[in-house]
Amino acid sequence: MMTHPYEDIEAYALGSLDQQQAQRVLEHADGCPTCAVLMADAMAAVHSMMGSQPERPLPAAGMMQRMLRPQLFHSTASAYSRAPGIPLLSWSVAAASLAACFALLFSNAQLRSNAQQVPIALLVHSHFTHHELRGGTGNAKVIQATDGRWLYVVADGLMPRTFYTLSESAGGRSRVVGNFLSTNSGTATAYWEQSPARIDGLVIAPVQNTGKNGTLRWP
């Protein structure tokens, strides 16, 4: 049964709820037309208390860069979920480092992550769609430029420290986009640029047969 948090709406706007309560009220009001209107009034009231705010320059130390880090982009893909704990940029760096170590250890060209560094600004300024890959162990989303020029993989729940291959199909033909390595905790991010293509299918599969069902597919 839905309970409207009528008594907490003004408290939210005043900043007088603890973080958990505040989050609950905001989430509820965001999807409830009645509470959204009440919240809008409460926010307008607090806004009027604030008066006309002066501007305070933000620190020069890359505020915009930090704001536009992949975490933001991750939230695009997973609607309303925020990357837990370690920012995705760290995951990406960790994945790349592990990939390099693995490649050195095994000297196996096939098992080398060929993912590129993520050009955040380019992603943020691009038009894109995203696809959920399902099937085996883990979850993955592939974010794809509308014109197919780049692909960005965000995954979790994968088999840890495992090389995966991302393949795409376009017009009935399949090709390997590249390999990436999952982290110890089974997360991964990877990015590739390519020639424009209208992709109609994506598959993420472990490079080596692990005996487990690790293949994820879209559609």
Binding site: A29, A36, V46, H47, R82
Partner: peptide, 25 residues
């Protein structure tokens, strides 16, 4: 701002407008 992106489809941003929402959040 991250929260704004996450709540961009929510009803409050639309009904409260951008600056009251952002300032309160």
């Amino acid at each position: 701002f991250l929260s704004l992106w996450q709540h961009r489809h929510g009803l409050i941003v639309r009904s409260a407008g951008l600056s009251p929402w952002l300032f309160v959040v």
